[in-house]
């Protein structure tokens, strides 16, 4: 039982760190990925709380579909600023 407690404690700390990263990261695309990661961790908590159907939906819809929506909206808003690829950034800005 002590091992299970430790694993749950570490998972809670990781999820809260992901929530803080979603609020404080400068890169907004990274913040969107952190939000999807928080959703994935919460789905693990649902499995632990014996709600496997909710965990399935949260992982597929909350992490997958929501992350896809956020990434597409970030592309439309011109937030895909990756410093390494200057050419693709210009192309993305002109397509908006």
């Amino acid at each position: 039982m002590a091992w299970a407690d430790l694993i749950i404690l570490i998972m809670v700390v990781l999820v809260l760190a992901g929530a803080g990263a979603a609020l404080f990261l400068e890169n907004l695309l990274g913040a969107a990925v952190a939000t999807a990661l928080v959703s994935l961790g919460v789905s693990v908590f649902f499995v632990i709380l014996r709600a496997p159907d909710v965990a399935l939906t949260e992982a597929a819809v909350g992490a997958g579909l929501s992350g896809l929506l956020l990434a597409l909206a970030a592309k439309r808003l011109g937030l895909w600023r990756i410093e390494v690829q200057q050419d693709s950034e210009d192309a993305g800005d002109s397509s908006c």
Binding site: L23, L28, A31, A32, F45, F46, A51
Partner: peptide
Amino acid sequence: NLFRIVLALSLAEAGANLLLVL
């Protein structure tokens, strides 16, 4: 930032769902 407000709304929603299942 408007985009970050949407992200924060998603975070609060995940916490509320976890609380309800708990």
